[in-house]
Design a binder for these strands. Structure first.
Lengths: 211, 211
DNA sequence: TCAGTTAATGACAAACATGTCAGTAAAGCC
DNA sequence: GGCTTTACTGACATGTTTGTCATTAACTGA
């Protein structure tokens, strides 16, 4: 074995996390070993200990790296938007489906499902994120639509999780069945929009429209 | 240690599987050990090897045990049913939510998510089941509704997975967030029915009703 | 009741994972 | 170039899990 040692103090942690990500994905949390991560990262097993004390620490750092705040931009867009609410909702839901297709989103969810009980903080964090960015934004869109007479007032007390549910369903479907029967993303998105927009539209008789 | 050995050739396999189920649930697949299963089952570790060669075999037998065919009864009910389709759909979706709340369903899904890649046969099996019993039944209900003028014809080309999506969403929500924020099952079911039934109803102008 | 059968056990060897640390070599500095 | 620093390595000691098997004890039936 030729020794091709490299010193890369800055880059190492990220290289290790990237390798760990692949290993977690392949073997699950408990099934992942330091040896496996090291091999994939192309370094010695001992090197990992220079940067991370334990598997838990690696896991923690990894989930932090994946976290992003993708909806902020859309929240800002909402402030100045002036068009019809259904187009706005459509944009929101399309964004949700895009998110759901990201491999990192899928990995994170997979981890939440399989290891969540070992990491309650992580679960709490994500719950807060979903409520703060996702659902509250959707709430504003829906109520904007009701106020403008574009959505039926009766839907005000709908639990809005059912409105994004098809995107969640698509995410898990892909997560589980992708190798057997990959989803037609576009078809699902269209069905989703169709279902939801039909449902939210006000009954034709009762127009409170300002238009 | 008092030796309280029991001989129970017939009952053992099931006892082992039950213990394994609890261990898988607690520690995941890779995190589960023969020692853990044996301890929980109250037997010696060696005994397990009399019935199962490996962890994979245990897992396989376990998933087979969990499998049931819960929708057959409903399919039969559909044959003779003569009432309105929305009530029928409501019954179907309610059943889905009940299913989703079963701890065994949750465990099975958790396993599919975290270990599915290691067990492609299991994934295929479940995919077939979902299509055969779940979606095809829903398909029949929806088309019955369209034929009777109770549902809008436009929804015929909807991907029906979006119709059950809220139940799936509820399942995964519980799976991940139950400790942080348990779902109000009833509220979700009501929102689900509300969303879907509003959407499926035909536009009031275009009644094709036979009523 | 005793001999035969076999389910069940737990000690054992082998395989594997973890965390440590003395030593090695790559980079920085004069 | 030679000296210092330190990122990196891999062998070691320790602990855990696996699979085997000789032994044990619970049932069986004549």
């Amino acid at each position: 074995m030729t020794e091709m040692r490299k010193r890369r103090k800055d880059a190492r942690p990220n290289e290790i996390l990237t390798a760990a990500l692949a290993e977690f994905e392949a073997n699950g949390f408990a099934g992942t070993t330091f040896a496996g991560i090291a091999k994939r990262a192309g370094i010695a097993r001992g090197t990992i200990y220079l940067y991370f004390d334990s598997k838990d620490r690696i896991f923690d750092a990894l989930t932090r790296r994946i976290l992003t705040d993708p909806l902020e931009e859309m929240a800002r867009a909402l402030e100045v938007y002036d068009g019809p609410s259904d187009a706005l909702l459509e944009r929101f839901l399309t964004h949700m489906h895009d998110e759901a297709a990201e491999t990192e989103t899928i990995l994170l969810l997979r981890i939440l499902v399989s290891e969540g009980r070992r990491f309650p903080d992580l679960v709490r964090l994500h719950h807060a994120r979903i409520n703060d960015s996702g659902l509250s934004l959707l709430h504003r869109i829906v109520h904007r639509g009701i106020a403008r007479g574009e959505f039926a007032p009766e839907i005000a007390d709908l639990d809005l999780r059912v409105v994004i549910a098809p995107a969640i369903m698509a995410l898990f479907w892909q997560m589980i069945f992708a190798p057997v029967a990959p989803l037609d993303r576009d078809a699902i998105l269209r069905s989703h929009l169709n279902l939801v927009l039909r449902s939210l539209r006000p009954a034709p008789g009762v127009r409170t429209d300002t238009g």
